[in-house]
Amino acid sequence: MEEEVEAGAVKKFMYVNRKQPYGTVYALEVLEMVLISAAFDQDVHLVFTDDGVLQLKKNMATDGIGMKNFSKTYRALEGYDIEKLYVDQESLDERGLTEDDLLVDVQVISRAEMADLMDQMDVVLTA
């Protein structure tokens, strides 16, 4: 007897992070959504642009504001097989940052390259 297995199609997903980590809850919520959705084995792309690049800043110390420092969790993404992380150079420049300021390995691309990448996606979610 053959079992019918529904072969789920793999889609290209992009999560676009555009906000700082602690002023609002968006960054943490997206991170949790990404971790949960990792179970569905989709082709996930994580983009950090505009103020979103600040989510990946090294050396966060959140004791003074009474919130949990969740930046270490970005380093767990590799274990969840989420390895396509992108940052645009222009957003880093605007904030006086360089790739060395980031706590995970990312691909630094230009805004034009980011636009091309976004154009290839099946699903794009932004927060």
Binding site: L35, A76, G79
Partner: peptide, 15 residues
């Protein structure tokens, strides 16, 4: 301690 989350089961087994 390293990642500030409890891992999903498949991530746990892999690790």
């Amino acid at each position: 301690n390293e990642y500030q989350i409890a891992p999903a089961i498949r991530v746990l087994t892999k690790a």
